[in-house]
Simulated scan of single mutants.
Amino acid sequence: MRRALAITIAAAVALTLAAGCESGTPTADGPPPGVPSSSSPAAPTGSPSQPAPAPTASSAPATPEPKRKLKSGLEGPDVLALQQRLTELGYWNGEADGKFGSTTQQAVYAVQKAAGIRRDGTVGPNTRKALDQGVRPKARSTTGTMVEIDLKRQLLLLVTDGQVTRTFNTSTGSNEYYQQEGETYLADTPRGKFKVGRQIDGWRDAPLGLLWRPKYFNGGIAVHGAPSVPPYPASHGCARVSVSAMNWLWKNDAIPLKMRVWVY
């Protein structure tokens, strides 16, 4: 009798354990009496019902990425924006194409000269500041149309009624002595007021070198194109501009015969 009773109790325990392993979640019949009905387990007392937000970075404003230094050989939308700004301010640099070539470098020289900053032909913080501030050279003349050549700043200006319409980098006389046919001369660009008296549409093989499409305004001194136009005085007396700039001046008849030239 005791043996049979033990077997019966063991069987009942086994059935209870088997049911507990199966029922990990409430059955369709709902929770036991006394437990509130809910589609999800109740949140523990004192705990937030929503998960805490993930940690975020500091709310301080992000530091903007520094702009790259623009120089010859670079390309991109920032170069295009530079070219457009130069044109807007009157610094001749051809057509904007997003490529920083020698023509753009010449225009950068010009704005650096106008601003009185280092003339290195690249666009860093100081040159950007000058561009942002809209630095432009001022004319000395007040009426009429003329060319002004500023020897101190080494700039060639096209001026109409006191307003500068175009600005070019130029390189005038180096003020150094040179020898020619046994004689010694000073490479200077004389100050004064002149007029364009003659011109040659092509290369002029002059005693002191090649001149591209020169426009003479004082004897043998001319505004002419040259392969090299540094940001400092380097010529024998003429006012050099780039070959592409000289082509533009001819194409637009910007320096016609009899036009006044003021060198100061």
Rank of each mutant, 00 (worst) to 15 (best):
M1L: 10
R3M: 13
L5T: 11
I7T: 14
I9P: 09
I9Q: 12
A11T: 07
A12E: 09
A14H: 01
A19D: 04
A19Q: 10
G20I: 07
G30C: 01
P32S: 05
P33S: 14
V35M: 08
S37I: 14
A42G: 09
A42V: 09
T45L: 15
G46E: 09
P48Y: 06
Q50V: 02
P51F: 07
A54E: 14
A60Y: 06
A62M: 06
P66L: 05
R68W: 04
L70K: 13
S72V: 10
E75Y: 09
D78L: 08
V79M: 08
L80V: 01
L82D: 02
L82R: 10
R85A: 13
G90H: 04
G90Y: 04
W92G: 11
G94V: 01
G94D: 05
A96V: 08
D97C: 10
G98T: 04
G101A: 10
Q112H: 08
A114N: 02
I117A: 03
R119P: 03
R119Q: 12
D120T: 06
G121K: 05
T122A: 15
T122N: 02
P125Q: 05
K129V: 07
L131Y: 06
D132Y: 06
G134N: 12
R136M: 11
R136E: 11
T142K: 15
T142S: 10
G144T: 02
G144E: 02
T145R: 13
I149F: 07
L151V: 07
L151K: 11
R153W: 07
R153G: 03
R153H: 15
T160S: 15
G162E: 03
T165L: 09
N169R: 07
S171L: 05
N175S: 04
N175E: 13
Q180G: 12
E181M: 08
Y185A: 09
T189H: 12
G192T: 03
K193P: 00
K195L: 03
V196I: 08
G197A: 14
R198K: 07
G202C: 11
G202E: 10
A206I: 02
A206W: 06
L208E: 11
G209P: 06
G209C: 13
G209V: 05
L210K: 13
W212D: 00
W212P: 06
G220W: 11
G220F: 05
I221H: 03
G225N: 00
A226Y: 02
S228V: 00
V229D: 01
P233T: 09
A234N: 06
S235C: 08
A239Q: 03
V241K: 05
V241G: 07
V243T: 05
A245W: 05
W248A: 00
W248D: 10
L249Q: 03
K251D: 12
I255D: 07
I255Q: 00
P256R: 00
L257W: 05
K258Y: 04
M259Q: 06
V261K: 03
W262R: 10
V263R: 05
